[in-house]
């Protein structure tokens, strides 16, 4: 701020390193395909031309967990799918985030029974819950924007602490 005022427009922007890192993380966030039920249809719709999630740098849905940093759990997770979900989450490189999309992934939804996990937060740590059955594409995009806000507020210190906890 100070430098620009003194020297005028040099085509240079000053900021903090944290700011740059977080900005680049939010604007090239690659979600992993994890369509499990009807929410997946809305997730596909969110990427189509009328809603166009690629405005936020999210046009690349990766089929491989190694290449992605956001997991959108779209649909109910059965007891047999849980270990698979956890394994894929463990394979994602740090830093990583999780959106539980829809009522079923958030709290079990209408499936209060023996076969379905009552919220995917029993399997992986969730950052943002998106309500709706299924949520409209706008709601999913709002969830994504919320996670962008969260990422922009993170600091290196938090990353370091999180890393210490996991190892």
């Amino acid at each position: 701020m100070g430098v620009e005022q003194k020297l005028g427009n040099m085509g240079v922007v000053t900021t903090t390193l944290e700011g740059v890192v977080n900005w680049s993380r939010t604007n090239a966030m690659w979600p992993m395909l994890f369509g499990l039920a009807c929410c997946a249809i809305e997730m596909m719709s969110a990427q189509s031309s009328s809603y166009d999630m690629s405005r936020f740098g999210m046009e690349l849905m990766r089929a491989s967990p190694r290449q992605s940093d956001l997991m959108i759990v779209a649909g109910r997770v059965s007891k047999k799918m849980g270990p698979v979900l956890r394994r894929l989450y463990d394979q994602m490189p740090e830093p990583k985030w999780v959106i539980a999309m829809g009522d079923c992934a958030s709290c079990g939804g209408v499936f209060n029974n023996y076969a379905i996990f009552q919220g995917v937060d029993e399997v992986v740590p969730v950052d943002v819950f998106v309500a709706g059955c299924p949520p409209r594409p706008e709601a999913l995009i709002h969830g994504v924007m919320t996670i962008h806000e969260k990422v922009k507020g993170e600091s290196f210190k938090q990353y370091a602490e999180k890393y210490k906890q996991t190892t």
Partner: peptide, 18 residues
């Protein structure tokens, strides 16, 4: 069901809900 599950869900005395 998963291999390690306990009980048999379609029995009438299996608890409803979770």
């Amino acid at each position: 069901s998963p291999e390690d599950m306990e009980g048999h869900p379609l029995r009438k005395d299996f608890p409803l809900g979770y």
